[in-house]
Design a protein around this nucleic acid. Structure first.
Lengths: 243, 243
DNA sequence: TGTCTATAGATGTATAGACAACTCTAGACA
DNA sequence: TGTCTAGAGTTGTCTATACATCTATAGACA
């Protein structure tokens, strides 16, 4: 019982607090070897399974590193690699209390993709591609140009959906759950077309989020989102799980 | 034993696979109520703790939603909000096999910050700020301008560290573990200074990652990274935990 | 000196059982 | 009819125990 707080939390949470405290106040510096599960079990007066669960979760959260047969160690502090959450623009606009509207600029089927598209899809054999462009407005102001290319072999009836109301991913998620995703964020100067659609000047800076989706071997979609930089930055906030 | 794979994985992993399979092939659609732990226990022939661990981890990973006293349900598919990992540029350059070099452009102490700085730090009382600018090179090509403002009250001896070799965060992490972080990604046109330091043209598009760090109430740092968009995009790849 | 092996010690997984906490509902009761 | 209550069902936590698996090392042995 020495060291464990007496608030009404589960025991394994108290053990986690105990460990985080020791890391936080410097008692257990980086790469320090923790007491073994057995030692913690007897010194804290809880069962080994409880200690084990606490240490396992802290490991999953990045605070500890465990090596079977050796021991448990304090990990170097994280957040030198940090997570950012990219959310669906429709839900985000609504979450901000703004009004959302979408406008379909283009819907077409490309029967014979050019070389650039073929490369992007890593095609082995030729296959038609569906192409869509949608502009999203927040309170009447255009904030995002969304461009999608979809492999027709993998997603049927892509062009039939309602592009103005459905979430970016919802359609694909329903048809093919558990896919792989690749993201790439970059900055580009606005082309003449960008400028016209987003009400900005040519060569203004745009934030581009490129998203590729896989199912098995073949690539199903390439989505490109162009955000107007200053109007719509991507953001996130990380709060450590410390209570 | 019906339904569990026979590869050499731990049992709770097999149970997770079993659940993910049923979600993936549509047997258990969105919001479907899963069999209770007791039912899974007897139908799969494993103990309840094993089932419980599998379901708990799948819940933490976002696949399930559990309500005490009611049951377990299939969550709507995730990845409409997706995670991106931002890594330290030094380690990333080295991971790509390139050579890294950094050049200190400026080191100064601002005794009386102007209004813009005061706002960024949300200062209550006046306090000097340390300011640094470093350019990072990959194989001799400038790829990033790193600008930091540090509250001197919270981080002592900031200007004494070796800016060219130490990781972006390492120093701060050592002195103050378990901090809060806020990120903002945006795109801006290069100023004359950017253009000169990064060997690009004025008004070229730059990717900006703004990072604020907090310890308790006061803000410790505001970091600004300017990536040259096309040369150094931010990226990530998400692979579902399916084996 | 070098190599192999047995072993201690650590973490990883699995089980059975018990109790706690929460939700919903059928049925008692006014 | 409306309200309250007891209970069944479900998930959450905790313990005690056992065995598996991995690692490092001390000591036997060539």
């Amino acid at each position: 019982m020495p060291g464990l707080s007496n608030t009404a939390r589960p025991l394994y949470e108290k053990v986690k607090d105990f460990v985080l405290d020791n890391i936080g106040n410097g008692s257990w510096p980086q790469n320090e070897k923790l007491p073994s599960e057995h030692e913690l079990t007897s010194s804290l007066g809880v069962s080994r399974m409880t200690v084990h669960r606490a240490l396992r979760e802290l490991t999953a959260e990045g605070y500890l590193r465990r090596v079977q047969g050796v021991g448990t160690f304090v990990s170097p502090p994280k957040a030198q690699s940090t997570l950012i959450e990219i959310s669906n623009i429709i839900t985000e606009i609504k979450a901000r209390g703004s009004q959302h509207r979408a406008e379909v600029i283009l819907l077409e089927r490309i029967e014979r993709p050019d070389q650039m598209l073929l490369d992007a899809f890593e095609f082995r054999k030729l296959c038609p591609v569906d192409h869509s462009m949608v502009v999203h407005y927040e309170n009447g102001v255009p904030v995002q140009l969304e461009e999608r290319y979809v492999n027709t072999e993998l997603v049927k009836n892509y062009l039939d959906q309602d592009f103005t109301s459905i979430g970016t991913y919802d359609y694909l998620q329903h048809s093919t759950p558990l896919t792989e995703v690749e993201h790439l964020i970059s900055a580009i100067p606005a082309t003449e077309r960008h400028a016209r659609l987003l009400h900005i000047r040519e060569r203004d800076s745009c934030l581009v989020l490129n998203r590729k989706t896989w199912t098995g071997q073949a690539i199903a979609t390439v989505n490109t989102f162009t955000y107007v930089g200053s109007r719509y930055p991507l953001g996130s906030r990380y709060l450590p799980p410390k209570k």
